[in-house]
């Protein structure tokens, strides 16, 4: 799983991207805490963070459903690193945002709707 996931990145929908990246589907969990703004004025820079109380986390990924390609970022969390990450994403338009946490071989997700005033992908 060390190669750049070109194939997963080429998937247009977040469901397909999750399937290709992980080879399984996720279940919603309230142990995944996704922090994102309700309204993003500038879709070019949207601060997003995720934390989780799950044990044995091995990776965290972000998917922006309405972007040309859904996969936005994928983080590997080795043993001993705290499973929390913050970053800034681009969003083309108002969209569903999905965070996936892989813990103990299973996938857990949190979803949030972000309203975008000005898109961040350009014409």
């Amino acid at each position: 799983n060390d190669k750049y996931p070109e194939e997963a990145f080429r998937q247009k929908s977040e469901a397909d991207a999750i399937k290709v990246l992980y080879g399984k589907t996720a279940e919603p969990s309230d142990k995944v805490k996704l922090d994102a703004p309700e309204i993003a004025e500038n879709g070019g820079v949207v601060p997003i963070s995720v934390t989780t109380t799950l044990d044995k986390v091995t990776s965290i990924s972000f998917f922006v459903a309405e972007n040309p390609f859904a996969l936005a970022a994928s983080y590997k969390i080795p043993d001993g690193t705290i499973p929390a990450v913050a970053n800034r994403l681009k969003m083309a338009r108002t969209t569903k945002l999905v965070a996936i946490v892989e813990a103990d071989g299973k996938l857990y997700s949190a979803t949030k709707e972000v309203k975008v005033t000005v898109g961040g992908c350009g014409g």
Partner: peptide, 17 residues
């Protein structure tokens, strides 16, 4: 910590972990 980043990451990538 390792990250695979895609074009949906904002310019001047900021990361916190």
């Amino acid at each position: 910590f390792r990250a695979d980043l895609f074009p949906a990451i904002a310019a001047n990538p900021y990361l916190s972990f």
